[in-house]
Structures are given as C-alpha cells and as structure tokens.
Nucleic acid binder design. Structure first.
Lengths: 341, 341
DNA sequence: CTGAAAGCGCTTACAG
DNA sequence: CTGAAAGCGCTTACAG
C-alpha cells in the first residue's frame, strides 16, 4: 500500500507538519538536519504525495485544461487529424510539466461542460486550442472565471491572454513575394466574410497591392473555404480566367494543395502557368510538387508563449502586463512561385 | 463560493448520504420522491461535486493517462508534429469522455515518472501512444500496476491490452498489388533489423513474392529508416540500379514521399520509371504527385478498441478475454503504381 | 429507504 | 524551528 504523510512523519519521529514543510520546500521553517532526514526517509519509502488530498485542502490542483471546442456541426474527425493540434498539445504539455503542472485534455461541445470541468477539478487555468471557441464560449470568456489563454482571437476579451500571429503581415509577405517575382495579377482565396482573422489576411493582401500600385480587383478574390475542396474549386475557377491570373495567395497550405490540384485538372501547369503560395508552412509543403512556398507562423512558439503567460498569471495572481501578443511571421521559400522576369 | 454536499443536504432536509446516493445513481437506496427533490435542488444551486474529494475517499479518480514516451535522444518536436498523435488523442479522449472519464496527457522520459503519475492521482488506467515505450517501460509493463493498453506491441505482455495491425498483411497487400500490376522487381525499404513490427512487414513482402514464385533478393531490401530522409537516400540508391527495380514498397507514407523525391533527383519519372506504395494512408497521400497508393490501418478504430477494452477491464476488474487484437488493413488505390501490362 | 460516525491524506492557521 | 487541532468535501461501512 502507498505510504502517507503520517507514515513518513512517524518513521522520522517528527510531525506531519514538518514533513509537509519539507516536501513543499518551506525550508525556512525546518532545520537543515531535519530536512535531510525526512528527505532520506521519503526516498527510502518511495513516498509519493496524494494529489487529490492536496487539491482538496489547498483548493488548487495544478491541473491545466486544454480545451478543444467541437461544435456539433463540424466533422470532429478531420478537425483533429491535424498536425497543428498535436504540435500545440505537445508544446503546451511539455512546458506545463516542466513547471509542475498536469495537463488535462478535453473536448467540449457546450459551455456548461467547461464550467463543470473547471469546478470539478479546481482547474488552475485553461488554454483554448481553437479560436472558434469564442462564439460558443463568449460568456465564459467575458467572465473569465480562471486564468485563460486563447489563440488568434480578435475580440481581445478583458482578462484573457491572447496570442496571435501577425495575419496582416502574413498575407502582405506572400503577396509581396509574388509581386517581387513579377506578378501583378494575383488572386486571393478565402471566405473571409465574417471571419476577422481571414479579413485581416485579406487586408495584408490589399496593402501589398496598394503599396505597389496594383489595383485591387474584387473579382480576384475567391470566396472558398481554405481547405482542400475549397482549393480545388478555386483552382478550377482561376484556370477559367485563361491566363489572366498568374499567381494566387492563400490562407492555408491545404487550400494551396487543393488549388494546385484544381488548376492542374483544368490544364494549368504549376508553377509555370500559375504560382501558388501557402500558409502555415506545414510538413506537406515538402510533399507537393512543386514544393510549396508558404508563410510560417511558429506554432510551437505561440503555444509556449501562451502557456508561459498563463503560468505567470497563475503564480503571481496578476493579469500579465502584456497579455495580447502578436507573433511575427515569415515566408519560407520553396518552388511554387516562378519569376516572370 | 461553490456549494458542497452538505449545503445541498441541508437545503433538501436530508442527510449528506442521501444526496450522495442520488448523485451516484444508487436509486435503490432512495425513494423516487427524494430523488426528485434532491435533483431539483442540485440543479437550482448549480451544484458540482468536488472530484478531488471523491477521488480521495474512493481511491479512484476516473482519470486515464495517455502516455507519450519520449526518449531523450529523439527529436521531441518532429515526434509530435504528427497527425497520428492528434487522431489518437482525439479518438481516445472522446471515448473516455462519453464514459465519464478524464484524460490526462503526459509525456514521459523515465519510468519513474510513470509510477509517480499513477500514484499521485490514483490514475485508473494508462494508454501508451507509442510502441517504442516498451523498451523504456519493460518493467512497468511486465508488472502492470494498473490496467494498461498499448499499441503495436510484439511482446504481448501478460495483463496488458495490445491492439495491433496486421502488419504482415499490410506489406503482403502492397507487394501483391505491385505484382498484380506486372511488377516483379520490387524493392522493400525499412531498417527492419531488431524491429519486430518492421520485420513482420518484411515477412509480408516475402510472402507475397514467394506466393507468386518471385525469388526474394536481399539486395532489393534497402535498410533505411522509414522517414523522409531515409526515403530520399533509398530513392537515390534504387535509381542507381538503372531500371532493374520497377516498384518499391514502404512502411511509411513519409518514406514513400522521400523515395519519390530521391528517385526524381536521380532522374527517374514517377510512376513511369518507378512505382511506389506507401503505408498509413495519411492525408499527405493526396498531396504528392502522383497521389500515393497506400496501406490503411484504421487509426481511429485502433484507438477506440483499445480504449474500450481498457474501460471494460476497469469496470469489471477482469482482464479482457481477448486482450490482443489484430486489426485488419486494406490497400487504398491512387496513382503511384503503373501497370506494366 | 435514511442517517450519524469515521476517515481518506493532505494543508491552513495558529500557538509555542 | 516544531507541532496539535481542525477541516477540506466527499464515501465507506455500518446501524436502524
């Protein structure tokens, strides 16, 4: 059977209090000699504290919840077969573990579930994996019943840590990259309406055009979902412009892969007839042919930063001074853009 | 402040015991009338049980640990940027949640960590995400201190649930597929030595050859790691056989993608000069050109089955009658194999 | 069907 | 620097 504090205290000939103080590093309350003795017995007995008991009495659990919000309409499956998710979870778990926290992962379909989890386990903080969560969890985020971190949110709720990417710059960079390679008839693909993040990216696209005195043409904006199917549809439409469009910028690598496919099905050669730029710099950029030039938003760094801000808030009890961070992005050059010069 | 059992009991004018029985569904011990009254008060007060307290007294937590073993030599990062991981975690978490369990994710580098987690939280069961874990956790698995599920393990530890794929059949299918398209000079790529899983796949390859009276040639086995870099190296070597080899079967899609790259760099046209078959049927199969024909092992189904067996063991307290399951595999046809007829 | 008592393994708050 | 007491919010085991 597992040993308890009491057992250790008896073996060491001290009170439970003293053992507790040793374990919790309150070394100013215990003599060096006692510390050593107690620690030795702990090691000998392979004592492990019962965290449920600790949690019960201290009203804190050192558990952080990673919340994956799943609206029921969505295809839960494709939602998760996603390197973004595992990279995020991996980076967050690692940082939490280094800091003595535990990671509870939970998908949530209703806001009630969230409160329940929170109070069930005295969860110390919550990290939302998907920006979409804010529609479902608007109330929750507005109230912020515990430290919360979220990504890519454009509402900047008070009291909620928010780590974003510079989405405007992302599309600015990819559009500029195409322009610098001699393109001026550049399409943009994404159903940005009602989506602040995609709208921000559209703005970056427009900004790059404007800066280079290229008129913005609404007919070059293709409002398809930034996924594979949307990309295929967009690729076909772009091909139907019979050469007028020479480059296309996107908001997702998978969408870019779809565009390549759709354009090819319509007889275009990539990149000779059409240059394509992705977004996210996923591993798949290496597997397409031509290899996909893409915008990289350092996912691991985003996860790390959000986690650190959250832990800081938990430790200090104070909301971070800079809770809204915008991470830089960069373009990763491969072979999907051809120079027209 | 959160309500407690005691508060609810007072409001309802009953004892804590009765409230507890209502909550835990021991309805044979409470009158229907009392149940209704108590349930209503619980709802009114938005009462949520404190699971730390429950865990402390019942010596069980309803927490299941998903263990991602990370040996220090490995590149922890690439290890996780993997759709396999997120698909597994997603499927497992969902099933656990449906059954009232909580999912704790933890990466582990030393076996001590495991025991600690187990005892710290009274974890009910453990699911190992990676088969590699068995080297690191041999002792742990041999002793099985709690219900454990693992994947693709060839040792079949007593008392450990083990869900595998039919690896022999996987390579048998892909090799046969190539044979049926007129190929007889077929290479196999994987550093199978010392790896039971890959050896099993090699056996499937041999079996298909034998069955079709094609001699097995050791020089057609290329012992490279089944990753992108290994694939590139193998692709180059295969190309150096100047046309003698017309097809290659692999044990990973990423490796197949590398082979395509390496062979192309050496001047081969895919699939005209070299047909390629992948393994895992990842999403990337759609993104390569030609699209990759691959062997599919239903990952989600594997995760689900393992989880269900584990929960069964936890509930009944008895080790499942069929703890070692071998899942079927199938070939998914795309465009990376050309017919020689 | 209902409940009073004891206890799970810790920490908090206090006294010395 | 050390410890005795009380209590966290539940469930177990028992009595009625």
């Amino acid at each position: 059977m597992n040993m308890t504090l009491k057992d250790i205290a008896e073996k060491a000939g001290v009170s439970m209090m003293t053992v507790s103080n040793v374990i919790n590093g309150k070394h100013n309350r215990v003599s060096a000699q006692t510390i050593e003795k107690v620690n030795q017995i702990i090691k000998e007995c392979d004592y492990v504290p019962n965290l449920s008991a600790r949690s019960l009495t201290s009203k804190t659990s050192n558990i952080i919840g990673i919340i994956i919000s799943v609206t029921k309409q969505e295809n839960e499956e494709s939602y998760l077969e996603n390197p973004y998710v595992s990279t995020m979870i991996g980076a967050i778990e690692r940082e939490l573990r280094y800091n003595g926290y535990y990671t509870m992962v939970r998908s949530v379909t209703q806001k009630e579930d969230l409160n329940l989890l929170l109070r069930n386990w005295n969860v110390n903080g919550i990290i939302f994996l998907y920006p979409d969560s804010d529609n479902l969890f608007h109330d929750f985020l507005s109230a912020a019943p515990c430290p919360i971190a979220i990504f890519d949110n454009y509402k900047n709720y008070d009291g909620v840590i928010n780590v974003c990417s510079d989405d405007d710059k992302g599309l600015y960079l990819s559009t500029k990259y195409a322009i610098n390679h001699g393109h001026s008839n550049i399409a943009f693909v994404a159903d940005y309406e009602g989506n602040p993040l995609l709208t921000e990216r559209l703005n970056g696209y427009k900004r790059a055009l404007e800066e280079n005195n290229i008129p913005f043409r609404p007919e070059y904006v293709f409002s398809h979902s930034p996924n594979y199917e949307g990309g295929i549809a967009a690729g076909k439409k772009i091909a139907s412009f019979s050469g007028a469009i020479t480059a296309v910028v996107t908001t997702a690598d998978i969408c870019a892969a779809g565009i390549i496919e759709g354009a090819r099905l319509s007889g275009l050669r990539i990149p000779i007839d059409l240059s394509v730029v992705g977004y996210d710099n996923l591993q798949l950029c290496q597997f397409t042919s031509p290899k996909l030039t893409s915008v990289s938003q350092n996912v691991r760094q985003k996860a790390l930063l959000a986690t650190r801000l959250l832990l800081e808030q938990i430790r200090t009890g104070e909301f971070p001074a800079s809770p809204h961070v915008v991470m830089d992005v960069e373009i990763v050059e491969r072979q999907s853009v051809i120079s027209l010069f």
